[in-house]
């Protein structure tokens, strides 16, 4: 610790020593570079033609011109942005935005109410209800897809055992194939993790805050609105990032719930379908992946400052 602080011209030994002591910093940047190489390669390849991608590695892109290929070329981006199959990319991006915004805000609100109730309203069976809710994190959500699709497309019916009469609990509302079906599904699937995360945080808020508020005559709704929400902005933003990333990048749930209604399909489905059969046009995925990554990145950078503080209080004070 002391060797590096000596002022003036240092002899060779300490200089080597200081150099080697900085290994941890290199390790950081080596890791960062390693983590970025794959994405960087994608970026370079997205600017190359199909045959160029096939015949040489992206680090040789600078030779493309000599090999008779265009580089850099925007033709992949043009093809992606001009895609018309599966509803087109502009339409897909709109649908993605619609899905991700609503499926981020509504679960956060619902989970915040529930987390508050689990943390600060006393009632019988609270602990077990909470454990039961969190245990549902373990459900592989794919199993819910077909029953939910059935419910959206033809309602929910149940046969009462003894009298053998079929009862319609939820009528057929024609939700299948629409974006609201995706909202509802994402909302339900997000709740266990959202409640888990928010509850950690909200339960860790100082108790005296609530007591003094109650003495002032505030009811639960007021406490929640005036006290809990402002104090929880960090964790709400943190969850918002995760949920936005997941819903924006989701492919399976949206495709299953929307199916053959192509005007409602999100951008991930549009881009995936560009590849075509046998991966014929797979080179277009390079550009497509970048186009759909832009939005979540913007969201990440916008919410990042909340994010860091957010998770902290929740997970550390547990």
């Amino acid at each position: 610790m002391t060797a590096t602080t000596t002022a003036g011209r240092r002899p060779l030994g300490p200089r080597i020593y200081g150099f080697l002591r900085s290994i941890p910093t290199w390790v950081l940047w080596i890791l960062v570079v390693l983590w970025t190489i794959p994405t960087f390669g994608l970026l370079v390849n997205s600017l190359r033609t199909r045959d160029a991608q096939r015949t040489s590695g992206w680090w040789l892109a600078w030779q493309d011109g000599a090999n008779g290929f265009d580089f850099p070329t925007l033709q992949n981006y043009e093809a992606v942005l001009g895609a018309e199959a599966t509803g087109g990319l502009a339409n897909g991006l709109l649908n993605s935005a619609s899905i991700a915004i609503v499926a981020t805000i509504i679960p956060i609100a619902i989970a915040a109410f529930a987390a508050y109730a689990f943390a600060w309203i006393d009632f019988r069976g609270r602990e077990w209800l909470f454990i039961g809710t969190i245990a549902l994190l373990a459900v592989p959500t794919q199993v819910s897809l077909i029953p939910l699709l059935q419910a959206y497309s033809s309602g929910v019916r149940m046969t009462i055992p003894i009298i053998e009469k079929t009862v319609t609990i939820i009528p057929d509302m024609g939700l299948a194939g629409t974006i609201p079906a995706v909202w509802l599904t994402h909302t339900g699937f997000a709740l266990p993790f959202a409640i888990f995360l928010l509850h950690n945080y909200i339960a860790g808020l100082p108790k005296d805050l609530f007591e003094s508020a109650r003495i002032d005559g505030a009811d639960h709704f007021k406490i929640f609105w005036k006290l809990v929400v402002p104090l929880s902005i960090p964790v709400l933003a943190a969850f918002a990032i995760f949920q936005f990333l997941w819903t924006w990048n989701d492919y399976l749930i949206a495709l299953t719930m929307i199916g053959g209604n192509r005007v409602a399909l999100p951008a991930t489905v549009v881009v995936a379908s560009l590849a075509g059969e046998f991966g014929l046009r797979e080179h277009l995925l390079t550009a497509g992946a970048f186009v759909i990554t832009v939005v979540p990145l913007v969201v990440f950078f916008a919410l990042q400052r909340f994010f860091v503080r957010g998770i902290t209080a929740g997970s550390v004070k547990g």
Binding site: T36, T39, Y251, I292, T293, P296
Partner: peptide, 9 residues
């Protein structure tokens, strides 16, 4: 960054 990239990407 990789978290923001979809599985397709």
């Amino acid at each position: 960054l990789p978290m923001a990239i979809s599985f397709v990407g």
